[in-house]
């Protein structure tokens, strides 16, 4: 067991003018762990996720990442070429809207292959074989490899985005509401797929979700965010069965049980 976390976030803040969207957040992510960020819209969970990935520069704080290639790096000071390389290889970002993570004018196979080429793959036959294998793995008919993603359903597009992200075997996967915006039956199938892939690949994941059921199913730990701050952090069953903070209690008590 490695004794250093994969990711150490310390006192991270993101300000938009006077608004502190993320306000002094600290947490660790260990290798092989799934941590869910929960909270209502506007609580800062997506901003936190995007600033960890580098889409939004933090205003203050530090993010230490244990890289395969570069050893421990401070992401807030990392030069752009190395950040881009990490984003192409060791990290993956799954957008809520698959159209933000896919190239709609490229075939399904090219979407998966492009990420492999970004990570250094050059042999066309190998790239195509891996793309086929990954389409199959995310339950997309490999016969659709040359079709454009815009001919896919929403659920298929999301599965394609997941194949594109996971094909390089990233160590750190950031997911922003990956099941949001899908019909419930499609959502269930995607959740089953994510649950299986996370276990099979031993992924380390930060998962943003407003759905506590999704957090219960996928995450070992939960961070509850309210107004940019983490108000409670703990094991999934502890936070959901014995929430301590008033806001956590409100979230848990607001869930409809069908």
């Amino acid at each position: 067991m490695t004794e250093t976390p994969l990711l150490r976030v310390r006192n991270l803040s993101v300000r938009f003018g006077a608004l502190a969207a993320v306000d002094g957040v600290s947490f660790d992510l260990w290798s092989g762990e799934v941590v869910a960020l929960v909270g209502e819209s506007g609580s800062g969970k997506t901003t936190l996720l995007r600033s960890i990935h580098g889409f939004i520069p933090p205003t203050a704080g530090s993010i230490l990442y244990r890289s395969d290639r570069f050893g421990e790096v401070e992401l807030t000071h990392l030069d752009e070429p190395r950040r881009r390389l990490l984003a192409r290889t060791e990290w993956g970002f799954v957008h809520q809207n698959p159209r933000d993570g896919l190239r709609l004018s490229h075939s399904a196979g090219a979407n998966v292959g492009e990420r492999l080429m970004g990570a250094g793959a050059r042999h066309w036959g190998t790239i195509r074989a891996q793309a086929l294998a990954w389409l199959d793995r995310v339950e997309i008919d490999p016969g659709r490899i040359d079709d454009l993603p815009r001919t896919f359903s929403g659920g298929m597009q999301q599965r394609l985005q997941i194949a594109r992200v996971l094909v390089t075997k990233p160590r750190l996967v950031l997911m922003d509401e990956p099941t949001g915006g899908l019909d419930v039956s499609v959502q269930a199938r995607l959740l089953d797929l994510l649950r299986r892939l996370v276990a099979e690949l031993g992924l380390s994941v930060i998962l943003v979700t407003h759905d506590l059921g999704v957090a219960r199913l996928l995450a070992q730990r939960i961070l509850v965010m309210q107004r940019g701050r983490v108000v409670e952090a703990g094991l999934t069953d502890q936070v959901l069965d014995d929430p301590q903070h008033p806001y956590s209690q409100l979230l848990v008590s607001s869930v409809l049980v069908a």
Binding site: G234, L235, D241, Q244
Partner: peptide, 9 residues
Amino acid sequence: LRALYGTYV
């Protein structure tokens, strides 16, 4: 029992 399992704080 739940406290002994760490579910209850």
